[in-house]
Structures are given as C-alpha cells and as structure tokens.
C-alpha cells in the first residue's frame, strides 16, 4: 500500500508554510510501499501532527491523504480498525500505554487484538533483546520512560503491518539500547517486507534509509 500526500497542510501551521517551503507540507509526496523513510523535523514544525494525520487521529488539515486509492477522511471507523490491526502499526512519541496493565499485558493486547501472528513466547524473546524482560510483569505506569518506550516498540511489532509509523521512537534510550531497538525493528520490517516512516529531530544512521525528508 502506498501512502500519498497531496498539498497536505495542517490548518494551525498553514500561515507558516505558505512562506517557507517544506519537504512534506503543501507538496506532493508518494510514500511507496517498502520504503524506509526518515523525516527530519526540528521542534515545532509539526512532526507529531504529521504522524497523527497519517494515522487518522486528526482531521484539521487541508489537502489530501490517500491510503492506496482511498481518501483517508472517508474511510469508516470499522475499516480504520482493520487497517490499524493489519496494515499500519505505530509507536507514539507519548507512548500511550495502559498504566494499570502490566508491560506484558500492554504488549499482548496488540498481539491478540487480531489473529495472532506470534506465539506469546515471542514477547519474552523481544523483551530480552531490548533488556526489559525483568519488568514484563510490572504495571506499565511504574516503569521508567526508557522502559515504557521499549514496551511500546515491542507492542508495535506484535502485529502484521505494511507500514510502521514511529514518532521519535528512541528519544528516551541510550546509544546502546537505540542500536538494539533499531536492529529489532529493521529485522521485523524485513520479515514483513514492510516500509516505515520515522520522525526525529536530528540526522541519524539507525537504519538504512531509502528516502529522507525535511519537514
């Protein structure tokens, strides 16, 4: 599935981007299937806004977003749920875990929401690779930010997807953990033949990007 943006501008940012050009806002962008896309965005340029628009979480924009041939605005709630279960996965900047559930339950939620593609042991394997196996049975609310970020990463990798959208996925991780997490993500994307879009403040070499954009 390709994701196409046509003259997309969030209304709150409209005035700013009429004056200056942007790689994404107010232009024609085709995010092709299997591409590994990096969006570099300084603070305040609408990085999180872009992620939320792409995930159909906000509608206050002009221009169009297409999933394949479908106008994102017109896709009904039931279909969006199916897309979020099978085609598009996400790692939020603000993580969005259920604080009262344990780390394992948070991850398992996305494993069993649709037909599971992985057995439960995969949670332990991934957790071990990211160094969070010790907190799996702890409520997510009392985990540190770095731990919560890794829980969110594993959660996003539990489901099938064609696109993985990541909003500053390593912001709370040190270099070593970032390397491990990026390796796991790259591995899982390759397994699925999937593309991703990652936003960050700076340039990095966490992945072998096929395309770069400046917001």
């Amino acid at each position: 599935m390709d994701i196409k943006l046509r003259n997309l501008v969030p209304r709150p940012l409209k005035d700013r981007f009429i004056l200056r050009s942007s790689g994404i806002w107010n232009s024609e962008v085709d995010l092709r299937h299997k591409e590994w896309v990096k969006v570099k965005a300084p603070s305040g340029t609408g990085k999180t806004t872009l992620v939320h628009v792409l995930f159909k979480m906000r509608h206050d924009y002009e221009g169009m977003v297409y999933y394949g041939d479908r106008d994102l605005r017109t896709i009904p709630a039931g279909d969006i749920a199916t897309i979020r279960q099978k085609q598009v996965s996400i790692i939020f900047q603000d993580l969005r875990l259920f604080e009262n559930l344990t780390a394992r339950e948070n991850i398992d939620l996305k494993r069993v929401m649709q037909t599971a593609i992985y057995p439960p042991e995969v949670i332990d394997d991934m957790a071990e690779r990211l160094g969070i196996q010790g907190i799996l049975n702890q409520p997510a609310g009392i985990c540190s930010y770095g731990e919560q970020q890794r829980i969110a990463i594993v959660r996003a990798l539990m489901q099938p997807f064609e696109w993985l959208i990541m909003d500053e996925p390593f912001s709370h991780l040190d270099k070593d953990n970032t390397r491990k997490a990026a390796a796991l993500i790259a591995e899982e994307c390759k397994k699925r033949n999937a593309g991703f879009l990652v936003t960050d403040l700076e340039d990095d070499d966490n992945f072998d990007y096929t395309r770069h954009y400046d917001l």
Binding site: A81, T82, Q85, R96, F98
Partner: peptide, 15 residues
C-alpha cells in the same frame, strides 16, 4: 479515555 486509546490502537467499534 481507555476506550479512546483502545480505538486508537486499532480496536474496532464492533469488538
């Protein structure tokens, strides 16, 4: 809030 997050994470209204 929980229901909204569930829907954001992809839980369908019918589920």
């Amino acid at each position: 809030n929980e229901i909204r997050l569930l829907i954001t994470l992809g839980t369908s209204p019918s589920q």
